[in-house]
Computed example of a mutant assay.
Amino acid sequence: MKLIFAGTPEFAAAALKALLAAGHEIALVLTQPDRPAGRGMKLKPSPVKQVALEHGLRVEQPVSLKTEEAQRMLQEVGAELMVVAAYGLLLPKAVLEIPPRGCLNIHASLLPRWRGAAPIQRAILAGDRETGITIMQMDVGLDTGDMLSIHPLAIAADDTAASLHDKLAACGAEAIVSTLAQLDSLQAQPQPEQGVNYAHKLSKAEAEVDWSLPAATIARAIRAYNPAPGAFTKLDGEPLKLWFAQAIAGAGEPGVVLRADAEGVVVGSGEGLVVISQLQAAGGKRLSARDFAAGRTALAGTRLGG
């Protein structure tokens, strides 16, 4: 098919690669404008733009799709369908109506479980055992369109947002290729009216650990905020980032370190114990619990937090 592809991060780049490998003609790629990145804050192209340029594809980076100029550009391409994956811009009704076969979205949840900006992290935070990819016919609502195909994926007990993102990116790439191959025979189904949740955008403030919560909740939060915004607490008044943790049975005063050894930094909570295995002190590198504890002989008994 002749397609327009709209996407920005690595999640979308995986889908673009898969569509190209499947032989689809990508007539136009839309992606977010280059953003400053790194220590030098130099402008960096999005992962989708990098893939597009490697394949000699036409790339446009409009700041809005609401202008007549942008909509005229999309019309002139003459694509049959638009595929959208984590693009970052709203598609107005006029744009949704341009491709004859509409616009399909690769959404990283089993709709309507998590609509919105952060479905991967919210699924881990909520303790969901399953997530997946929904290929959805886009409408003017926020992730409210009819579903063309559903692709479940189990959430492992040790999944972080980073590892689950990579699994879902691969799943989404396969899902959009298979959906397009069967498009003529698929019947779009309305989303269930029950079970709708909104996956609010993540904030740095919510990533601060509340040690009064149950250990299972804290451990999920630490994994859900890896890699961004990064769960954190305070150690001797300085920020301490926590990158991976699991919950175990036991009792201890919330926020107080019971022990620190090769198995992890073990901290009390409102219910159970949190075993932290990857930490990063302010200005330092990410370390294993063994290496972190080696340089701190008096961790046991220390209280984490405010």
Rank of each mutant, 00 (worst) to 15 (best):
L28H: 08
S203L: 13
P99M: 10
R72C: 09
G132W: 01
A126S: 14
G7S: 04
A215F: 09
A52H: 03
V77N: 10
A79I: 09
A118T: 08
L235W: 13
L19E: 07
A70R: 12
L3N: 04
L16D: 06
L180F: 10
D34S: 11
L235R: 08
E80S: 13
P33L: 11
L287C: 12
K285R: 14
A18I: 05
K93D: 09
A173F: 01
I26W: 02
A14N: 08
I248W: 00
A6R: 11
V83Q: 04
G127W: 01
D146G: 04
A207N: 05
G132K: 02
P45T: 07
S46L: 04
E193L: 15
M147I: 15
L304C: 03
T131S: 14
P152M: 06
A216L: 14
R58F: 02
V256R: 13
G255K: 03
A207R: 06
A281H: 08
L258D: 04
T144L: 05
I98G: 09
M82E: 00
A188Q: 07
A37R: 14
L3V: 08
N226E: 15
A14D: 12
G56S: 10
A205E: 15
A170V: 07
Q61V: 10
S277R: 15
P100E: 12
I218E: 01
G23T: 11
Q137H: 11
Q187W: 01
V266A: 06
E76D: 15
K2M: 08
V84R: 05
D158N: 14
R129M: 08
S178R: 09
A156T: 08
V95A: 06
D210G: 08
G23D: 09
A251K: 15
K241G: 07
D291S: 14
K17H: 11
A13L: 10
I276C: 10
D128I: 04
A162C: 00
A27S: 13
E206K: 05
V274G: 03
P62I: 07
V275D: 01
L20M: 10
S163L: 06
G23V: 11
A216N: 10
G306H: 14
R35N: 06
A157I: 11
M147R: 08
A22F: 03
M147D: 00
W114L: 05
E271Y: 12
A117H: 03
V266I: 15
D159Y: 03
K167V: 00
A219L: 02
E80I: 04
S109L: 07
K234P: 00
I150P: 01
A118G: 07
L89F: 06
V275Q: 10
R259K: 14
L104H: 06
A231K: 06
L202V: 10
L53W: 09
D158A: 14
P100G: 06
A219T: 12
K204H: 07
V265P: 03
L183R: 13
P112F: 03
S46Y: 05
G255F: 01
D166P: 00
E130T: 10
A181V: 02
G250C: 10
